[in-house]
């Protein structure tokens, strides 16, 4: 499984994004990280061809949240056959925006001295959860009331054997903040907020019943198409 970092959100293990057979011997694995406000694409490049690889560069297509490389892809030496190099590419969110389907789809082009190769990958939405995503309590109540009921989505998080405090702490390390907590008829109700890099707020109610590993998550957002991906982020964070 992946690793949680002390000062950042959950990092999934690297997955193969571009198999060597589709890229004339270049294999790319990667994952996304967010640490103290910085987003990175962590990459592993392997040369499975018979010739040396040089002149690497990377480019992203326009995407839903404007993710873009914040620096060139720096492979300092030629990559020999059978050689692997690990890189961390810093990203920002000031690139061109175009709504993708699914919302978290990222199309990437990588070139080297042999050719240009294309692949798509999905980024976990929690790398976009900003550090100042704790909404003021008064604002939370007003916003919760203001967002229409039809913008509320409800999800079940099953088989999650955490107590309320552990769940809340885990979520907070991925920038999902508990604004208030109440206990009604034996169940804990956590009211939480998060903010995406593009300024979109998401409000949540997480219901946890002691001894019941199934949580109920209700999400309210003015852009309800993000709710499904925020739910996925909750699943990933709570179960890792």
């Amino acid at each position: 499984s992946g690793v949680g970092t002390l000062s950042g959100s959950y990092v999934a293990p690297k997955a193969v994004w571009l198999p060597a057979m589709k890229a004339k011997g270049l294999e790319i694995s990667g994952t996304f990280t967010r640490q103290v406000g910085s987003i990175s694409m962590d990459l592993q490049l392997t040369n499975k061809a018979l010739q040396v690889m040089t002149d690497f560069a990377i480019q992203f297509n326009r995407n839903s949240f404007g993710l873009a490389p914040a620096a060139p892809l720096q492979v300092h030496a030629p990559l020999s056959p059978n050689q692997t190099v690990e890189l961390s590419l810093p990203l920002n969110t000031v690139g061109s925006v175009m709504k993708m389907e699914p919302l978290n789809n990222l199309q990437v082009a990588v070139k080297n001295n042999i050719d240009v190769f294309y692949f798509s990958t999905l980024y976990p939405l929690h790398v976009l959860f900003v550090e100042d995503g704790k909404m003021d309590r008064q604002m939370f109540l007003a916003t919760w009331k203001d967002i229409p009921n039809e913008n509320e989505a409800q999800f079940q998080i099953r088989d999650c054997p955490l107590n309320t405090e552990t769940a809340s702490n885990k979520l907070q390390s991925s920038n999902i903040f508990t604004v208030a907590k109440r206990n009604v008829e034996g169940q804990d109700m956590l009211y939480q907020s998060l903010k995406l890099t593009n300024g979109i707020w998401v409000l949540a109610e997480l219901r946890i019943q002691p001894g019941n590993p199934n949580f109920t998550l209700s999400l309210k957002c003015r852009a309800p198409e993000v709710s499904q991906h925020v739910y996925q982020a909750y699943e990933t964070i709570l179960k890792n």
């Binding site: 309590r137 008064q138 109540l141 208030a180 008829e185 109700m189 009211y191």
Partner: peptide, 20 residues
Amino acid sequence: ELDDGLDEAFSRLAQSRTNP
């Protein structure tokens, strides 16, 4: 702690969500 009415408002919200 200052009673700004928000504690009570959150209690009402939680109550209304449990027993609509």
